[in-house]
């Protein structure tokens, strides 16, 4: 039995969701590690976009900032934030990977404040490019730890759109048709969204985890998908590349 930690599992699962030749807008940390791992395994032509202007880089190492020099290392173009976000807005970008302090059943994300807006208990950075990516990219994916404080019935502040209030709400608000949350990858399992209700549902459960554990750590009622499986564990090759080439200094996997 191979040894791996929860973060390594999350990154490997996320990486496998990125098809070769697809386009993905990513931030630093776990999303970037997943994209890099995909590029070094099954998806050499994964087209990575960074919001500050890096277009299709060949990452030599993990960037520290989404605007640092690594984000356009051997890229096909060093461009602007407008050019990147407009590629997303006109429908050229398949995936985005985001995080957040809170997420609700419809995949709405909060990265602005916890507590009342006027007198927050914590002020977070705000949207950054998250609202833009989740508005424009076809499919939004989220990597986050799974606990009832994060997975809440109602986010304190809806920074970044998921399915808003349910079926049809994105289109009603004016957001691009057929876009929205796709997968939520946590330390307990992989969640998707019910096509009818647009509510989060469990698609696969990590080894050693039960559905009851997922429900207990989720602050809203969560159901099982029609077909529910056990998450495939990381392969020897994925773990080796992740540890030796993607994140040799352990910035993300040993955090």
């Amino acid at each position: 039995m191979k040894e791996y930690n929860a973060m390594e599992l999350m990154i490997c699962v996320a990486s496998r969701l990125l098809e070769d030749g697809s386009t993905v807008g990513v931030g630093t940390g776990a999303p970037c590690a997943a994209a890099m791992l995909a590029q070094k395994t099954h998806a050499p032509d994964l087209f990575i976009l960074f919001e500050a202007g890096g277009l299709a880089p060949q990452l030599p190492m993990m960037p520290i900032s989404v605007g640092d020099s690594r984000t356009f290392h051997r890229a096909i173009m060093a461009t602007s934030m407008g050019d990147i976000m407009e590629a997303c807005q006109r429908g050229m970008v398949d995936y985005t990977f985001l995080g957040g302090a809170q997420i609700d059943a419809y995949g709405n994300l909060n990265s602005t404040v916890v507590g009342p807006y006027e007198k927050p208990s914590v002020r977070f950075p705000g949207s950054g490019g998250a609202n833009d990516f989740a508005s424009f990219c076809w499919r939004t994916m989220v990597i986050t730890n799974h606990d009832a404080k994060r997975f809440v019935e109602k986010v304190d502040f809806l920074t970044t759109p998921g399915y808003l209030t349910g079926p049809g709400a994105r289109e009603e608000a004016g957001l691009p048709r057929d876009s929205g949350p796709y997968r939520v990858i946590t330390d307990l399992g992989v969640m998707g969204f019910n096509t009818e209700t647009k509510r989060m549902q469990v698609e696969s459960i990590h080894p050693g985890v039960t559905f009851e554990m997922i429900q207990r750590n989720t602050g809203f009622e969560i159901r099982k998908a029609e077909h529910i499986g056990e998450t495939d564990v990381p392969s020897e090759m994925e773990l080796r590349i992740l540890r030796e080439e993607v994140d040799p200094l352990g910035y993300v996997i040993n955090r």
């Binding site: 807005q89 807006y117 508005s135 809806l158 994105r170």
Partner: peptide, 13 residues
Amino acid sequence: PTRCLLGTDTFAR
């Protein structure tokens, strides 16, 4: 005009 912000508290604030 743009298609970001729509439907969110980011828009509301």
